[in-house]
Write a protein that binds this DNA or RNA. Sequence first.
RNA 1: GGCUAGGUAGCUCAGCAGGUUAGAGCACGUGACUCAUAAUCACGGGGUCGGGGGUUCGAGUCCCCCCCUCGCCA
Length: 572
Amino acid sequence: MARILITSALPYINGIKHLGNLVGSQLPADLYARYMRARGHEVMFICATDEHGTPAELAAAKTGEPVDVYCARMHEVQADLARGFRLSFDHYGRSSSPRNHRLTQHFAGRLAENGFIEEVTEQQVYSVADGRFLPDRYIEGTCPNCGYDRARGDQCENCTKQLDPTDLINPRSAISGSTDLEVRETKHLYLKQRALKDEIDAWIDRQTDWPVLTTSIAKKWLHDGDGLQDRGITRDLHWGVPVKKGDQDWPGMEGKVFYVWFDAPIEYIAATAEWADANGKTDADWERWWRTDKGAADVRYVQFMGKDNVPFHTLSFPATIMGSREPWKLVDYIKSFNYLNYDGGQFSTSQGRGVFMDMALSILPPDYWRWWLLSHAPESSDSEFTWENFQASVNKDLADVLGNFVSRITKFCRSKFGETVPAGGSPGAREAALVAELAGRIRAYDGFMQAMEVRKAANELRAIWVIGNEYLQEAAPWTTFKTDPDAAAAQVRTGLAMIRLFAILSRPFIPDAAAEMMRAMHSDDWSWPEDVQGCLNALQPGQPFEVPDNLFRKIADEEREDWQKRFSGIRA
RNA sequence: GGCUAGGUAGCUCAGCAGGUUAGAGCACGUGACUCAUAAUCACGGGGUCGGGGGUUCGAGUCCCCCCCUCGCCA
């Protein structure tokens, strides 16, 4: 039995995530967590909301709530949706937690002691009316190059020219519109990533089994242009982790907070501490997952994320950990994903284009989405969601191949033998061949699941479901029954047993349907089918079962067309 | 403009340490079956593997050039 630590990239707090976000990190991480638990491993699966930063403040201002209230509310909304999609986090934390405050300050203190922090004084635009410094992109004005009157302080969207906020003509705050701006001096902390570059570079070079998507992005940032740059890790904001050096004040940094990208990954660790707090555990209980000097040396740590998050996880966060010179667990494997596109374009949170988690659950149960998203996960390249494809996959794979299999065998049994597992007959050559074929497929499935080859695993699982139909078609118990009811009984037993087998194998992908299949067979034994033969003999003659309602319904053309229209436009 | 990834059957994608007639699922056609959610199973049609050069006995699979998507960076 191994110990596996799994983290999913943290969803940002300001709004509900779309399916592209879901399939890029949380969903595949859940698949892996569920599979590893099913195989008997000890799993710690962590996620959290990423709550700090200007976008959260602005979103809160829009709803008129204090930012902490807004975040608490949105955290619950996102946690509900996570439950709705059956994401099996051991803990769903918050980056604004006291644990994360302390730990973030701790890391900053260690980095400073080890000489990896530099204090830099710089000029920044301050909005008197807003009472705050403005990030470049929150300053608007007229572009000196093309005259566009809504150019942002970092770039003009019209002519694409790179700008400094001070270049803008008639600059104003994008938050309040106020023109009462002045340039003020402010001091910030920089993480000296350049000093750690060689160490990080060597570490990345050792990761020969990582997806190319992961390592190529890391190497690009390490070597491109002037190479890895130092990064500012503080901001002049109110909402965030106050800058401290461990538990000591940081002279000159009063009123400032750490920048989100610095505290967010640390929340992976802090959330595990939150897990301990929430479950009456001790510090030792979470430290054995994260401190290699306290039991985490044998932990395998796997991170899941979309490609946009790769730089932070391959460079910045490792720099934080390495620079602390403390024995924290570094990631062992980074599974990264490309983007899921929506019907010819991109999913867009700002434009409300695409399917969002809440809307998805309002039209269909989670298994339908889980199956389609996972079986089409954007692993090797960007992939595309279309309603036609979604309808076809769900109807064919779930309703026809799996759902109908369960339906046909249970209903046939009920009509000929009643709702108990029939006695009589015994397995023969066909059943032996069936076992061999299943065993081969399951071996392949296990291999893909362990390798986190999500799409290939889905294909293999589907192929396993097909074997059930093939078997029934060949054995044809409805024909056998006419001449040899005992032989038909043995065939039906085999068919019913496959429902249990499929439930176990399918649970990581479609947990609700799997639970229903298992329940219908009046069993609750989820042990992994190392012994396929034994698994097919597990149902005792005379044992009652139920004919479940249809596991999956089909999506009609009219529904699909309706959804297609509803989700193409602007989200309210 | 620089960089990453990708352009393989109508659709979504595999394949690539270079090697017999290029694969899967869906869709399509034919047949079988009738237990089942007009479900299932079998068989079949269908691709000059983005374009052009080159290396090789032999190239979707390696090299060069070009075109096109997507993203990141500037």
